[in-house]
């Protein structure tokens, strides 16, 4: 899926612990433009649920959650 939707920004938060990856995603989101696709990589076990929950709650679009080799990739679109 992510091969089709090319992210405008990739946040590589691998190695950081809760709440690091989520906070980095939010920071990137604040700097992004509406319509931008942001992808976050995380090795932290909380992010897989935390990040999608935040993306939905904040009124943005969750494009997908993907299990990669040793990490999780979460892709969102800034819709507001």
């Amino acid at each position: 899926m992510t091969d089709e939707v090319k992210p405008d920004k990739v946040v590589d938060a691998r190695g950081a612990f809760c709440p690091g990856p989520l906070m980095e995603l939010i920071k990137a989101y604040k700097q992004a433009k509406v319509g931008d696709v942001i992808s976050v990589y995380s090795t932290d076990s909380g992010t897989k649920k935390d990040a999608p929950a935040w993306i939905k709650k904040s009124g943005n679009e969750l494009i997908g959650v993907y299990d990669r080799d040793g990490y999780v990739e979460i892709v969102m679109k800034k819709s507001k």
Binding site: C18, P19, L22, I26, K57, S58
Partner: peptide, 11 residues
């Protein structure tokens, strides 16, 4: 500090 971060994430 962690709770503060979580609260920030919840706006």
């Amino acid at each position: 500090a962690v709770i503060t971060s979580g609260a920030v994430a919840n706006d």
